[in-house]
Design a protein around this nucleic acid. Structure first.
Lengths: 161, 161
DNA sequence: ATTGAAAAAGAGTAGCG
DNA sequence: CGCTACTCTTTTTCAAT
Protein backbone atom coordinates (compact mmCIF):
# COMPACT_ATOMS: atom_id res chain seq x y z
CA UNK A 1 0.00 0.00 0.00
CA UNK A 2 1.08 3.51 -0.86
CA UNK A 3 1.36 6.18 1.85
CA UNK A 4 1.81 9.81 0.93
CA UNK A 5 3.17 12.56 3.11
CA UNK A 6 -0.30 13.43 4.40
CA UNK A 7 -0.95 9.86 5.53
CA UNK A 8 2.35 9.79 7.36
CA UNK A 9 1.67 13.11 9.06
CA UNK A 10 -1.74 11.86 10.14
CA UNK A 11 -0.23 8.66 11.52
CA UNK A 12 2.41 10.63 13.38
CA UNK A 13 -0.31 12.81 14.89
CA UNK A 14 -2.34 9.78 15.97
CA UNK A 15 0.68 8.04 17.47
CA UNK A 16 1.37 11.18 19.44
CA UNK A 17 -2.23 11.44 20.64
CA UNK A 18 -4.91 9.09 19.38
CA UNK A 19 -7.67 11.23 20.88
CA UNK A 20 -7.02 14.44 19.03
CA UNK A 21 -10.07 15.48 17.05
CA UNK A 22 -10.07 15.17 13.28
CA UNK A 23 -10.36 18.95 13.11
CA UNK A 24 -7.14 19.42 15.13
CA UNK A 25 -5.27 16.85 13.08
CA UNK A 26 -6.62 18.45 9.94
CA UNK A 27 -5.31 21.83 11.00
CA UNK A 28 -1.95 20.27 11.78
CA UNK A 29 -1.57 18.55 8.40
CA UNK A 30 -3.53 21.02 6.26
CA UNK A 31 -6.73 19.12 5.60
CA UNK A 32 -10.40 19.34 6.55
CA UNK A 33 -11.74 17.17 9.35
CA UNK A 34 -13.73 14.96 7.01
CA UNK A 35 -10.75 14.42 4.74
CA UNK A 36 -8.74 13.31 7.76
CA UNK A 37 -11.47 10.93 8.86
CA UNK A 38 -11.68 9.38 5.42
CA UNK A 39 -7.93 8.82 5.38
CA UNK A 40 -7.90 7.38 8.87
CA UNK A 41 -10.70 4.99 7.91
CA UNK A 42 -8.72 3.95 4.86
CA UNK A 43 -5.51 3.54 6.88
CA UNK A 44 -7.37 1.23 9.24
CA UNK A 45 -8.89 -0.80 6.41
CA UNK A 46 -5.55 -1.27 4.70
CA UNK A 47 -3.92 -2.28 7.98
CA UNK A 48 -1.43 0.58 8.29
CA UNK A 49 -3.16 1.54 11.53
CA UNK A 50 -4.00 -1.62 13.47
CA UNK A 51 -5.90 -0.02 16.31
CA UNK A 52 -5.85 2.50 19.14
CA UNK A 53 -4.44 1.80 22.53
CA UNK A 54 -3.93 3.45 25.89
CA UNK A 55 -0.30 3.91 26.84
CA UNK A 56 0.18 2.55 30.34
CA UNK A 57 2.96 3.01 32.86
CA UNK A 58 3.91 -0.62 33.52
CA UNK A 59 4.89 0.25 37.09
CA UNK A 60 1.38 1.46 37.84
CA UNK A 61 0.10 -2.02 37.01
CA UNK A 62 2.69 -3.76 39.09
CA UNK A 63 5.17 -4.63 36.35
CA UNK A 64 8.25 -3.31 38.09
CA UNK A 65 10.87 -5.63 36.63
CA UNK A 66 11.84 -6.54 33.11
CA UNK A 67 14.40 -8.80 31.53
CA UNK A 68 15.73 -9.92 28.19
CA UNK A 69 16.29 -13.63 27.76
CA UNK A 70 18.28 -15.26 25.00
CA UNK A 71 17.00 -18.70 24.06
CA UNK A 72 19.29 -21.43 22.76
CA UNK A 73 17.25 -24.20 21.16
CA UNK A 74 17.76 -27.65 19.78
CA UNK A 75 18.84 -27.88 16.15
CA UNK A 76 15.50 -28.64 14.56
CA UNK A 77 13.32 -26.25 16.52
CA UNK A 78 10.88 -24.32 14.34
CA UNK A 79 10.15 -20.65 15.02
CA UNK A 80 6.47 -21.54 15.31
CA UNK A 81 7.29 -23.95 18.14
CA UNK A 82 8.99 -21.16 20.04
CA UNK A 83 6.14 -18.77 19.29
CA UNK A 84 3.55 -21.24 20.51
CA UNK A 85 5.44 -21.99 23.71
CA UNK A 86 6.32 -18.46 24.79
CA UNK A 87 3.05 -16.82 23.80
CA UNK A 88 1.40 -18.79 26.57
CA UNK A 89 3.17 -16.59 29.10
CA UNK A 90 1.62 -13.16 29.62
CA UNK A 91 5.00 -12.08 30.98
CA UNK A 92 6.57 -12.48 27.55
CA UNK A 93 5.70 -9.16 25.94
CA UNK A 94 7.93 -9.61 22.92
CA UNK A 95 9.81 -12.41 21.23
CA UNK A 96 11.77 -12.74 18.02
CA UNK A 97 14.10 -15.15 16.31
CA UNK A 98 17.47 -13.54 15.73
CA UNK A 99 20.83 -13.97 14.06
CA UNK A 100 23.86 -14.78 16.16
CA UNK A 101 24.53 -17.46 18.71
CA UNK A 102 21.12 -17.45 20.33
CA UNK A 103 18.04 -18.59 18.44
CA UNK A 104 15.54 -16.22 19.97
CA UNK A 105 15.32 -13.19 22.22
CA UNK A 106 12.47 -12.74 24.68
CA UNK A 107 11.40 -9.56 26.42
CA UNK A 108 9.81 -10.30 29.78
CA UNK A 109 7.86 -8.13 32.20
CA UNK A 110 7.27 -9.33 35.73
CA UNK A 111 6.33 -8.10 39.15
CA UNK A 112 9.75 -8.67 40.71
CA UNK A 113 13.01 -10.52 40.20
CA UNK A 114 11.66 -13.69 41.78
CA UNK A 115 8.84 -13.61 39.28
CA UNK A 116 11.31 -13.24 36.40
CA UNK A 117 13.18 -16.22 37.74
CA UNK A 118 10.04 -18.36 37.90
CA UNK A 119 9.09 -17.51 34.33
CA UNK A 120 12.55 -18.24 32.97
CA UNK A 121 12.52 -21.51 34.85
CA UNK A 122 9.26 -22.53 33.19
CA UNK A 123 10.44 -21.48 29.76
CA UNK A 124 13.72 -23.33 30.21
CA UNK A 125 11.68 -26.41 31.06
CA UNK A 126 10.30 -26.51 27.50
CA UNK A 127 11.64 -29.56 25.69
CA UNK A 128 13.26 -27.66 22.81
CA UNK A 129 15.18 -25.25 25.06
CA UNK A 130 18.83 -26.14 25.54
CA UNK A 131 19.79 -23.19 27.69
CA UNK A 132 18.94 -19.56 28.40
CA UNK A 133 20.94 -16.43 29.07
CA UNK A 134 19.18 -13.62 30.89
CA UNK A 135 19.81 -9.95 31.40
CA UNK A 136 17.79 -8.06 33.96
CA UNK A 137 16.97 -4.49 33.01
CA UNK A 138 18.58 -2.02 35.39
CA UNK A 139 17.03 1.13 33.99
CA UNK A 140 15.07 1.94 30.88
CA UNK A 141 16.69 4.75 28.91
CA UNK A 142 14.47 4.99 25.84
CA UNK A 143 10.98 3.74 25.11
CA UNK A 144 9.51 5.12 21.92
CA UNK A 145 6.03 4.19 20.76
CA UNK A 146 6.46 2.56 17.33
CA UNK A 147 5.45 4.77 14.43
CA UNK A 148 6.52 7.97 16.14
CA UNK A 149 9.27 8.47 13.60
CA UNK A 150 8.99 8.24 9.85
CA UNK A 151 11.83 6.79 7.74
CA UNK A 152 11.57 9.21 4.83
CA UNK A 153 11.19 12.27 7.02
CA UNK A 154 14.57 12.21 8.75
CA UNK A 155 17.22 9.75 7.89
CA UNK A 156 18.57 9.10 11.32
CA UNK A 157 21.65 11.25 11.03
CA UNK A 158 21.86 13.40 14.12
CA UNK A 159 24.96 15.54 14.12
CA UNK A 160 27.21 13.52 16.46
CA UNK A 161 28.16 16.36 18.75
CA UNK B 1 -1.14 5.12 43.79
CA UNK B 2 -3.79 2.51 44.49
CA UNK B 3 -5.62 0.76 41.64
CA UNK B 4 -8.72 -1.27 42.33
CA UNK B 5 -10.22 -3.95 40.14
CA UNK B 6 -12.42 -1.42 38.32
CA UNK B 7 -9.42 0.71 37.38
CA UNK B 8 -7.60 -2.30 36.05
CA UNK B 9 -10.60 -3.42 34.01
CA UNK B 10 -10.93 0.06 32.55
CA UNK B 11 -7.24 0.12 31.67
CA UNK B 12 -7.49 -3.29 30.05
CA UNK B 13 -10.46 -2.07 28.01
CA UNK B 14 -8.58 1.04 26.88
CA UNK B 15 -5.44 -0.90 25.99
CA UNK B 16 -7.61 -3.17 23.90
CA UNK B 17 -9.34 -0.24 22.18
CA UNK B 18 -8.71 3.33 23.23
CA UNK B 19 -11.63 4.62 21.19
CA UNK B 20 -14.42 2.72 22.83
CA UNK B 21 -17.02 5.07 24.26
CA UNK B 22 -17.28 5.51 27.99
CA UNK B 23 -20.74 3.99 27.80
CA UNK B 24 -19.39 0.79 26.24
CA UNK B 25 -16.54 0.55 28.74
CA UNK B 26 -19.00 1.23 31.53
CA UNK B 27 -21.21 -1.61 30.38
CA UNK B 28 -18.18 -3.88 30.23
CA UNK B 29 -16.97 -3.08 33.75
CA UNK B 30 -20.32 -2.35 35.39
CA UNK B 31 -20.25 1.43 35.75
CA UNK B 32 -21.98 4.45 34.22
CA UNK B 33 -20.31 6.42 31.45
CA UNK B 34 -19.62 9.39 33.69
CA UNK B 35 -18.09 7.23 36.40
CA UNK B 36 -15.77 5.72 33.81
CA UNK B 37 -14.76 9.14 32.52
CA UNK B 38 -13.95 10.35 36.01
CA UNK B 39 -11.77 7.31 36.63
CA UNK B 40 -10.00 7.67 33.30
CA UNK B 41 -9.31 11.32 34.07
CA UNK B 42 -7.92 10.33 37.43
CA UNK B 43 -5.80 7.56 35.91
CA UNK B 44 -4.31 10.09 33.51
CA UNK B 45 -3.64 12.62 36.26
CA UNK B 46 -1.91 10.09 38.46
CA UNK B 47 0.16 8.86 35.52
CA UNK B 48 -1.14 5.30 35.32
CA UNK B 49 -2.33 6.08 31.81
CA UNK B 50 0.30 8.15 30.02
CA UNK B 51 -1.61 8.79 26.82
CA UNK B 52 -3.41 7.31 23.86
CA UNK B 53 -1.68 6.13 20.78
CA UNK B 54 -2.42 4.63 17.39
CA UNK B 55 -1.03 1.15 16.89
CA UNK B 56 0.89 1.13 13.64
CA UNK B 57 2.16 -1.71 11.48
CA UNK B 58 5.86 -0.79 11.27
CA UNK B 59 6.09 -2.35 7.80
CA UNK B 60 3.45 0.02 6.48
CA UNK B 61 5.73 2.93 7.41
CA UNK B 62 8.78 1.39 5.84
CA UNK B 63 10.35 -0.08 8.99
CA UNK B 64 10.98 -3.53 7.60
CA UNK B 65 14.08 -4.45 9.58
CA UNK B 66 14.84 -4.55 13.26
CA UNK B 67 17.83 -5.46 15.35
CA UNK B 68 18.98 -5.75 18.93
CA UNK B 69 22.38 -4.31 19.73
CA UNK B 70 24.39 -4.95 22.86
CA UNK B 71 26.56 -2.04 23.89
CA UNK B 72 29.86 -2.48 25.70
CA UNK B 73 30.98 0.80 27.21
CA UNK B 74 34.02 2.25 28.93
CA UNK B 75 34.25 1.74 32.66
CA UNK B 76 33.01 5.11 33.84
CA UNK B 77 30.15 5.59 31.40
CA UNK B 78 26.97 6.88 33.06
CA UNK B 79 23.56 5.57 32.01
CA UNK B 80 22.53 9.14 31.29
CA UNK B 81 25.40 9.45 28.80
CA UNK B 82 24.12 6.42 26.94
CA UNK B 83 20.56 7.71 27.07
CA UNK B 84 21.55 11.08 25.70
CA UNK B 85 23.57 9.58 22.88
CA UNK B 86 21.15 6.95 21.65
CA UNK B 87 17.98 8.98 22.05
CA UNK B 88 19.22 11.19 19.22
CA UNK B 89 18.59 8.33 16.81
CA UNK B 90 14.97 7.88 15.79
CA UNK B 91 15.91 4.32 14.84
CA UNK B 92 16.54 3.46 18.49
CA UNK B 93 13.04 2.63 19.67
CA UNK B 94 14.12 1.19 23.02
CA UNK B 95 17.20 1.15 25.18
CA UNK B 96 18.01 -0.11 28.64
CA UNK B 97 20.99 -0.74 30.84
CA UNK B 98 21.21 -4.40 31.74
CA UNK B 99 23.02 -6.92 33.90
CA UNK B 100 25.52 -9.27 32.32
CA UNK B 101 28.50 -8.67 30.10
CA UNK B 102 27.02 -5.89 28.02
CA UNK B 103 26.19 -2.53 29.57
CA UNK B 104 23.13 -1.72 27.52
CA UNK B 105 20.76 -3.27 25.03
CA UNK B 106 19.30 -1.25 22.17
CA UNK B 107 16.28 -2.09 20.04
CA UNK B 108 16.59 -0.62 16.57
CA UNK B 109 14.09 -0.25 13.74
CA UNK B 110 15.32 0.57 10.25
CA UNK B 111 14.29 0.47 6.64
CA UNK B 112 16.69 -2.29 5.64
CA UNK B 113 19.82 -4.10 6.74
CA UNK B 114 22.09 -1.44 5.22
CA UNK B 115 20.27 1.12 7.32
CA UNK B 116 20.78 -0.95 10.47
CA UNK B 117 24.45 -1.13 9.63
CA UNK B 118 24.76 2.63 9.20
CA UNK B 119 23.05 3.31 12.52
CA UNK B 120 25.21 0.82 14.42
CA UNK B 121 28.25 2.37 12.82
CA UNK B 122 27.25 5.81 14.07
CA UNK B 123 26.49 4.55 17.54
CA UNK B 124 29.76 2.64 17.70
CA UNK B 125 31.50 5.89 16.84
CA UNK B 126 30.40 7.41 20.16
CA UNK B 127 33.42 7.97 22.37
CA UNK B 128 32.20 5.85 25.28
CA UNK B 129 31.39 2.79 23.16
CA UNK B 130 34.05 0.10 23.26
CA UNK B 131 32.29 -2.42 21.05
CA UNK B 132 28.87 -3.59 19.94
CA UNK B 133 27.28 -6.95 19.30
CA UNK B 134 24.25 -7.03 17.04
CA UNK B 135 21.49 -9.49 16.35
CA UNK B 136 19.21 -8.92 13.38
CA UNK B 137 15.62 -9.96 13.92
CA UNK B 138 14.64 -12.79 11.58
CA UNK B 139 10.98 -12.96 12.50
CA UNK B 140 8.87 -11.44 15.24
CA UNK B 141 7.00 -14.09 17.18
CA UNK B 142 5.27 -12.09 19.88
CA UNK B 143 4.48 -8.39 20.23
CA UNK B 144 2.12 -7.57 23.06
CA UNK B 145 1.01 -4.03 23.78
CA UNK B 146 2.12 -3.30 27.36
CA UNK B 147 -0.70 -3.25 29.88
CA UNK B 148 -2.67 -5.93 28.10
CA UNK B 149 -2.07 -8.33 30.95
CA UNK B 150 -2.52 -7.71 34.65
CA UNK B 151 -0.15 -9.26 37.21
CA UNK B 152 -2.76 -10.10 39.82
CA UNK B 153 -5.21 -11.59 37.32
CA UNK B 154 -3.19 -14.58 36.14
CA UNK B 155 0.14 -15.54 37.52
CA UNK B 156 1.81 -16.71 34.37
CA UNK B 157 1.39 -20.40 34.92
CA UNK B 158 0.06 -21.89 31.73
CA UNK B 159 -0.47 -25.61 31.99
CA UNK B 160 2.67 -26.94 30.27
CA UNK B 161 0.91 -29.28 27.85
C1' DA C 1 -15.64 9.93 48.43
C1' DT C 2 -17.95 8.15 44.53
C1' DT C 3 -21.90 7.27 42.03
C1' DG C 4 -25.91 7.81 38.24
C1' DA C 5 -28.77 10.88 35.57
C1' DA C 6 -29.60 14.80 32.77
C1' DA C 7 -28.31 19.07 30.18
C1' DA C 8 -24.96 21.51 27.37
C1' DA C 9 -21.05 21.55 24.46
C1' DG C 10 -18.36 19.22 21.30
C1' DA C 11 -16.96 15.67 17.91
C1' DG C 12 -17.92 11.80 14.70
C1' DT C 13 -20.38 10.52 10.58
C1' DA C 14 -22.70 10.54 6.04
C1' DG C 15 -24.49 12.75 2.00
C1' DC C 16 -24.00 16.71 -0.97
C1' DG C 17 -21.81 19.75 -4.33
C1' DC D 1 -11.73 17.28 -1.35
C1' DG D 2 -14.58 20.66 1.66
C1' DC D 3 -19.04 21.85 3.53
C1' DT D 4 -23.28 21.12 6.04
C1' DA D 5 -26.75 18.70 8.72
C1' DC D 6 -27.59 15.03 11.81
C1' DT D 7 -26.35 11.82 15.49
C1' DC D 8 -23.74 10.25 19.10
C1' DT D 9 -20.07 11.26 22.80
C1' DT D 10 -17.93 13.70 25.82
C1' DT D 11 -18.09 16.87 29.45
C1' DT D 12 -20.17 19.44 33.18
C1' DT D 13 -23.52 19.96 36.65
C1' DC D 14 -26.44 18.27 40.30
C1' DA D 15 -28.54 15.37 43.63
C1' DA D 16 -28.08 11.00 46.25
C1' DT D 17 -25.91 7.23 48.61
Amino acid sequence: MELDRLDRDIIAALVDDARQTYAVIGHRVGLSASAVKRRVDRLRETGAITGFSARVAPRALGWTTEAYVELFCQGKTKPSDIALAVSRFPEVVAAATITGEADALLHIRATDVRHVERVIERIAAQSFVVRTKSSIVLSRLVDTPPGAAVPEARNGSPAPS
